[in-house]
């Protein structure tokens, strides 16, 4: 082939540039990261899931308290919390979560007649396509082989970018450790075969945790029998905390 040096450099440059751009696009797509990180369903590796049944939650706040004790969560921060929704006859929605629901919910006066009232426990959604992992500049936030989104507090720089990127308000900067903090589904317990603290203490069985690869898991029964939904599905984060009876008012 007849090719002079200038042409060669030109073509080599274009190839390198094109390849670089192609690889970068792949890097930036959280979808690709997802496929490579999680083991496929149906294998022996556990893939964890979490289901919140909003019909069952009684708003006692024991889950919030248990989480705080188990994970040493500072007073002003919440790895999990419970929201109370009061919908009046005129369609107005009144939401509150005093102290994250940690001390239960005192009666609340709202204008109008209350048509509907319910509680919604919230926690990290451990998204399959997590924004927080995508934006962490140092790779301190990552997805475990079981699909749990974790923070390496020895490596986190505390820039708060993940806090901004989480659409669910599930993250905070731990005022003691000065690093990002969030629900881990009690990973330290789960790895020992225990359930997360909030699941353990819930008197109403409103919180369920299990292995999606285990056919006997209570989660599998719920997914086959109930109609479940996730929070903000339009954002495309594919949360893996699912909700039974999720009302349209809940964000």
């Amino acid at each position: 082939m007849d090719i002079d040096r200038r042409q060669f450099l030109k073509q080599a440059g274009c190839t390198l540039l094109g390849g670089g751009v192609f690889i970068s696009i792949g890097q930036f797509s959280p979808g690709i990261a997802k496929a490579s990180q999680l083991p496929p369903l149906g294998t022996s590796t556990p893939v964890y899931g979490f289901v919140v049944n909003t019909f069952k939650c009684i708003g006692c706040g024991k889950c919030v308290e248990a989480c705080k004790i188990e994970n040493h969560v500072p007073v002003s921060c919440f790895r999990t919390w419970v929201e109370r929704y009061l919908v009046t006859a005129d369609g107005a929605v009144h939401v509150d979560s005093p102290d994250g629901g940690c001390n239960g919910f005192p009666p609340r006066d709202v204008p109008g007649i209350i048509k509907k009232a319910y509680f919604v426990p919230k926690l990290c959604n451990h998204c399959a396509r997590p924004n927080c992992v995508q934006v962490c500049p140092v790779g301190a936030t990552y997805v475990s082989p079981e699909g749990v989104v974790l923070v390496d507090e020895q490596h986190c720089v505390g820039c708060s970018y993940c806090v901004q990127a989480c659409p669910y308000g599930a993250r905070f900067i731990n005022p003691v450790k000065k690093t990002a903090d969030k629900c881990t589904w009690c990973y330290h317990r789960v790895k020992r075969g225990l359930t997360p603290a909030c699941v353990l203490v819930c008197p109403a069985k409103a919180r369920l945790f299990g292995n999606l690869n285990d056919p006997d898991s209570p989660l599998i029964k719920i997914f086959t029998k109930e109609r479940v939904n996730v929070l903000k599905p339009d954002l495309g984060n594919e949360p893996r905390t699912s909700y039974v009876g999720l009302a349209e008012e809940v964000r």
Partner: peptide, 17 residues
């Protein structure tokens, strides 16, 4: 939160960010 770890951004960059 940890300025002493600022150089992590160059030593262990995560290019999706």
């Amino acid at each position: 939160g940890h300025p002493e770890r600022a150089f992590n951004i160059m030593f262990t960059p995560k290019f999706t960010s």
